[in-house]
Design a protein around this nucleic acid. Sequence first.
DNA 1: CCTTGATAGTCAACAAGTTGAATAGGTGTC
DNA 2: GACACCTATTCAACTTGTTGACTATCAAGG
Lengths: 183, 183
Amino acid sequence: MALRQAVLAALLEGEASGYQLAKRFDVSVSNFWSATPQQLYRELDRLEQDGMIEGRVVEQQGRPNKRVFTLTTAGRDHLHAFTAQPSKPTAIRDDLLVKIQAFDSTDQDAIRKQLLIRLEQARQKLTLYDKLRDDLLAGQAEDTYLRTADRIGPYLTLIGGRMFEQQNIAWCTTVLELLDQRA
Amino acid sequence: MALRQAVLAALLEGEASGYQLAKRFDVSVSNFWSATPQQLYRELDRLEQDGMIEGRVVEQQGRPNKRVFTLTTAGRDHLHAFTAQPSKPTAIRDDLLVKIQAFDSTDQDAIRKQLLIRLEQARQKLTLYDKLRDDLLAGQAEDTYLRTADRIGPYLTLIGGRMFEQQNIAWCTTVLELLDQRA
DNA sequence: CCTTGATAGTCAACAAGTTGAATAGGTGTC
DNA sequence: GACACCTATTCAACTTGTTGACTATCAAGG
C-alpha cells in the first residue's frame, strides 16, 4: 500500500503532472520508490477521488495540455499518519539473484554478461545520484546543508541510493572476481 | 514472473515440501527471493500441473504428512532457459525509504525508532548469513571452496545478502548520525 | 489437563504491479 | 519529407503479491 504514500511524498516537492511523476519514479532514476506510468495515472485518479490531492489542467502551447496535482491538507495528514506506522522489512526480489542462485545449472557466460550489464547500470545510477547530490548541496558542506536546509528527506534517500548502488557495484565486482577464481 | 524460477532454483538443493520452502523464503531469512507460504503453495500447484516439478506424499509419524517436490527435466530446462534471458533492473520499493523521503513532514521520533528497528533487523540477518557462510565453508578457505565445491550459486547469493545487510547497517547508522547533527 | 508452538497445509478476497496497445500533437534530424 | 522520439494520457487484461481466517496433528511445559 505504499505507492499512495510515495506519490504523496513526491508531491511534497511541489505540484507535478502524471508524466513528470512517471519520470521521477522510473526504475533507472528512482531513489525511494519505483512505479510505471500506468500505475501512477491510476493512483493519481484514486488520490484525487479520495481528496488527498487536487488536480487542475494547465494549457500549454507547443505540447499537449497536462493535469498538475497538489497535496491537500487531507493528503498531508494521511502521509503524516502513515509515517508513524511500523515499516515492513524489505523483501528481496531480484531476477539476477535467482539466476545466481541457480548459477551452476546455467549458461555461465550469459550470467557473466548480465552481471556486466548490472554493473554498468549501477555505475550510471551512481553517477546520476552524485550529480543530484551536488545540485542539492549547491556548494555547501554537508553539515551546513543539514542544519540550514528546508527539507532533508530527499537528501537522506539520495544518500541511501548512493550507498545502495555502491554496494551493487561492489557485489557485481566481487562475484565476477570469484567466477574468475573458479575458472 | 520470477517466483516460479526462484522455487525451481530452491529445489536444486534437493526435494522440499511447501512448508520447508516457506521457511527458506521467509523475509527474515531469504537471501535471493522472498515469498509468503500462500504464494508458494499456489505456485507449487501450478508448477506440478505444468510438469516442472513432481510431488509425492511422505507419510510421517508424530506429525502431519507432507508433500515433497522434486525438479523434473522440464523444470531444469525451464530454469536453464530463464537464466539466459536478460534481467530486469532492481526496483526499489521500501516503506521506510518513502517515510524518510517525507521526513520533514513526519513525527521524527517515530522515524528514528523505525530506523533503530531496521538496524536491529539488519544486524540479525547479517549474523544469520555469517553463520550460514561458516557452515557452507566448513572450515575451508574461500578460494579452496570455490574451486572444489559442487555448487557455488548459493554461496554467491549469500555473499550478496551479507553485503546488502552491511550496507543497510551503514545507511541506518549514517542517517541516525545525520539526524543528530541536524538537531 | 490445558495452552502454546511447531508442523503441514487450504480457501477466499482483495490490492498491487505488469504488459501492450492506442491516441495525438510537436520537435529534431538525416 | 519520412521517421524516430518526446510530451501527455487512457484503456483493458492479466499476473503477482498480501491478508486473514481455518483445519489438523503432535510435542513440551507448567
